[in-house]
Nucleic acid binder design. Structure first.
Lengths: 199, 199
DNA sequence: TTGTTTTCTTAACCTAAGTTAATTCGCTTC
DNA sequence: GAAGCGAATTAACTTAGGTTAAGAAAACAA
């Protein structure tokens, strides 16, 4: 199914033309390998044990990436919102079964490209490879900072940080997911919020 | 100070010749930009606020990378042992002040190269760039898995994991550092160990 | 509107880990 | 061997957060 340029969000176009620096021809070539996909709320884009065969641009909606422990408890590593890339990086790279679950928190529309196509194009278009590599480097910094945050800050500090940096997400996603992201249980988040609102 | 090849560990040589695939000449060129440095136990290789100007190969000894919270508490993100690369990745990349402390836990000998030299050489030797990029990708996976571990496992499970995967470190580094790495206080680690030894 | 489901909050209880400080252990050095 | 030092353990106490279950509130559908 051919993707028409007029149906593509400007953010997606600018990501590859302005940010990655691709020419018009290069962008058109790249675009021809993308396909659109819809993932309704609560459906999984990926489950642990599956191989991540594609890399995806999240055009609309939001997802959560999480693990499940042996007691069935879910632990959210990170969220993703429109404009972000999603996938299981390690599985994408090694083409072996991944460890994370990626589930749609809202109805999602995404544009995805297979890893084989992407690797081919990266070999053809050096700028694309550069961009992808830089993207992953930044993503690594984010993961490091998140690790430091989980280890260094108290639950209350983590909550206040999130509220400050991403206030909009409180309007969009259930508090239970935010609790899991903050690494506490829902009742604990409730207590914490009550404590803060009293002040 | 010129580094003589005979004084270099075979692991270092193989890292760049076998693993990265550099030729003899390329390796000699690379080696000529490295310099040897010693960091005695308890001294800092890097402190928060400083710019990470070099990337370093840890030839002997071990280090801990940690943050300090506002109450003065230290939180170890990871250890490094001989054969590993050390540095503040984000600061190295952006050349802006970093956030981590890197301290020698044992007397350290390291071989370091400035980021400017390294970048020059990466431009000259594509294989070197490839290798460095692949190295950082793997490092990213390790960070992701560490984040998942901290979020998903109980302190006891984290302890048993560490004991299984790196039993040797218990002979080398103080338990207080292991406690910090596991994200618990020393008394808590003691209790945990006692509990396990009873079984 | 009503009924249904999901989410959030609250309460009561419990437990594991933090805190502080004292004690013991092990190692070094004189 | 004794003295001194840092590290590890232990004990006593405190508390934040987990757990479970019940109830309130909000969102959604019929």
């Amino acid at each position: 199914m051919q993707l028409y340029r007029s149906e593509i969000s400007t953010h997606f176009v600018e990501l590859f033309t302005k940010s990655a620096g691709l020419s018009e021809q290069e962008f058109e070539l790249l675009l021809s390998h993308f396909q659109r996909e819809y993932v309704p709320r609560k459906y999984f884009y990926l489950k642990a044990g599956q191989v991540c065969t594609h890399t995806a641009y999240l055009n609309a909606g939001s997802t959560r990436t999480f693990t499940i422990d042996e007691k069935g408890g879910e632990h959210i590593l990170f969220f993703a919102f429109e404009g972000w890339m999603i996938g299981d990086l390690e599985s994408y790279h090694t083409q072996e079964p991944g460890k994370w679950y990626i589930q749609a928190m809202e109805d999602c529309e995404l544009l995805r490209i297979s890893s084989t196509d992407m690797k081919k194009l990266e070999a053809q278009i050096p700028k694309l490879k550069e961009w992808h590599s830089a993207k992953q480097t930044k993503s690594h910094f984010a993961t490091l900072n998140r690790l430091a945050e989980v280890k260094t800050l108290t639950p209350e500090e983590r909550y206040l940080n999130l509220l400050k940096q991403h206030p909009h997400i409180f309007q969009r996603i259930p508090l239970q997911f935010i609790a899991s992201y903050l690494d506490i249980e829902p009742p604990s988040l409730s207590r914490l919020r009550k404590r803060l609102s009293c002040k």
